[in-house]
């Protein structure tokens, strides 16, 4: 009995460090966020934390910037999926094989993924520099002065500029996940389709796509989760402006908490983000499962 006890103690010692960090710095803060969302606190040490029930949520839902941010996040999410899934699949199909140069091309498309969002955003800010940046300069040289816009300042287009930059950065991940799906398709199935006389398009539509449905599902879910919490790119590129044209939930939360010192309300936004992420992941998961059952 004693030996059994000491063995359990030993196991616990192995788990303790990880458990301690995880519980204190990740689990406790999440629970605390739920608690704080029902309270008012101005962020200063020693100031009162006051119970206000659902007032913070009321404040959030009555704030038009919240709805604007939510709408922007949804636009980013849907457009990212609509652009990156087909584009990533296209690249993966091109790169699915064994020939010289494949490593180079894969690295080229993957490079932006590993670079920091901060440096990517600064780089693009510089390329889109109004007047003589690379993009405007090229358009000018080609005689297309009329199509020059304030890419990052014009509220009617800057959200799309940001989305394109994010897609440029994230496409590599989508491609790699599709590639790992494509590699796992057994050669026998591909040969069978070939022997049955399926042409290129039929093979893609009826053989390849159904077999990489899993990869599609993973990509969609990762994009949903990833775009919901988008922050770095927008913070550096536009800071959510001008006039909240590019604000998303992440920047809205950041500003409410750390610029306006409304911590209770910011906690309520955090809770909304958490639940939204949970629900969207479930929905995406369900939709993908459903589809694979029908097929």
């Amino acid at each position: 009995m004693d030996r059994l006890k000491s063995r359990h103690l030993q196991i616990a010692m192995f788990l303790l460090p990880a458990l301690l960090f995880y519980a204190v710095l990740l689990v406790y803060p999440v629970l605390r966020t739920f608690f704080l969302s029902l309270h008012e606190w101005n962020g200063f040490a020693g100031s009162k934390v006051e119970y206000v029930a659902f007032d913070n949520f009321k404040l959030v839902f009555e704030d038009e910037i919240f709805w604007k941010s939510l709408k922007n996040v949804m636009v980013v999410m849907l457009l990212s999926i609509a652009i990156q899934i087909p584009a990533g699949l296209f690249l993966a199909l091109l790169l699915n094989g064994k020939w010289k140069g494949i490593r180079f091309f894969k690295a080229a498309f993957f490079m932006p993924v590993i670079m920091s969002a901060t440096s990517i955003s600064l780089l693009w800010k510089f390329i889109l520099y109004p007047g003589d940046g690379l993009v405007d300069g090229l358009l000018m040289k080609m005689g297309l002065e009329d199509s020059i816009r304030a890419w990052l300042a014009d509220p009617s287009i800057n959200l799309y500029t940001v989305i394109l930059i994010c897609c440029w950065q994230g496409l590599g991940v989508v491609m790699i996940i599709f590639l790992s799906g494509l590699v796992s398709i057994p050669d026998a199935i591909k040969e069978a389709a070939l022997i049955d006389g399926a042409n290129r398009r039929q093979r893609l539509w009826f053989v390849t796509l159904p077999l990489i449905r899993e990869a599609v599902a993973i990509n969609v879910i990762l994009l949903v989760i990833g775009t919901l919490k988008i922050f770095d790119n927008i913070y550096v590129l536009t800071d959510g402006g001008p006039n909240h044209a590019t604000d998303v939930l992440g920047t809205f939360l950041y500003k409410e908490a750390f610029r306006n010192n409304r911590f209770g309300m910011a906690s309520a936004i955090a809770v909304v983000m958490f639940l939204l992420g949970f629900v969207l992941t479930l929905v995406a998961n369900r939709a993908m499962r459903r589809e694979s059952l029908d097929g």
Binding site: R32, W41, L253, A270, M273
Partner: peptide, 21 residues
């Protein structure tokens, strides 16, 4: 442990700021 993969960083920022203060 695995449940922690679902936690977005934004949903812990405020309590962390409180701890830091």
């Amino acid at each position: 442990f695995v449940a922690g993969m679902m936690i977005p960083v934004h949903s812990i920022l405020i309590p962390l700021a409180q701890m830091a203060v």
